[in-house]
Amino acid sequence: MNLNAVKAIYRYEMARFGRTLLQSFISPVISTSLYFVVFGAAIGSRIEEVDGVTYGAFIVPGLIMLSIMTQATTNASFAIYFPKFIGTIYEQLSAPVNFLEITLGYVGAAATKALFIGVVILLTAALFVDLQIQNWPAMMAFMVLTCISFSLLGFIIGIWASNFEQLQLIPLLVITPLVFLGGSFYSVSMLPPVWQTITLFNPVIYLISGFRWSFFGMSDVPVGLSLLAIAGFTLLCMYTIYWIFRTGWRLRQ
């Protein structure tokens, strides 16, 4: 195991994050605050409680998920796409590293950044609503796992993308809609029966539902299923990355 390489990549990526810390920090704080002003205070006051939770508090898990999924995907995809774009990838390709080390470095850094932003949003939310977290370990586990799995997904997108447009495409066209329709802002039980069934095909629902369960002890789908879904998704991404490095797809000529 080339641990020095993992550390080098991780540090380098975190340094990039450090350079844009203010922006990375302020933008989620502002957008979260806006959500709370609009949905929590303005609209939320006219919405009934959802399963005994005020609407402002109810949307907190969904908001965190929305942010960490997009952040993790964007961070990781950019981290590997950028060296490809400017040509510095030659170094990673000619270095004595295997797929696991490269992935650990890049995905580790991207997941760390996303986790940081997730925690910032959680703290911001705590300023606006009275938050109760029933199961801290489960909450953290869901957050960390989501950061990792979506960073893995982002990593794959970054390798796949051959221009900036494609890099933006998946987060914009796939992840954001799936998160919005995955019960970030509502409980699945609020939907008409047909839509309830359709929603079950949205993988994001399992993540948000499990995450919300760790806060309020209620969920749209069983928690075990949520864990299974996220574990399966992580493994699928890992295998894809393994395959990419084994075949050199989009990386090696």
Binding site: N2, N4, A5, K7, A8, I9, R11, Y12, A15, R19, F82, P83, I86, G87, T88, Y90, E91, Q92, A95, P96, V97
Partner: peptide, 25 residues
């Protein structure tokens, strides 16, 4: 390499440190 491929906003010493680490030292 033939092309000048460097990350523009990184400090010289950091980009060299990165290379050393990447090669396992």
């Amino acid at each position: 390499p033939q092309e000048i491929s460097l990350e523009p906003f990184e400090k010289v010493v950091n980009t060299v440190r990165f290379s050393r680490g990447l090669f396992g030292l």
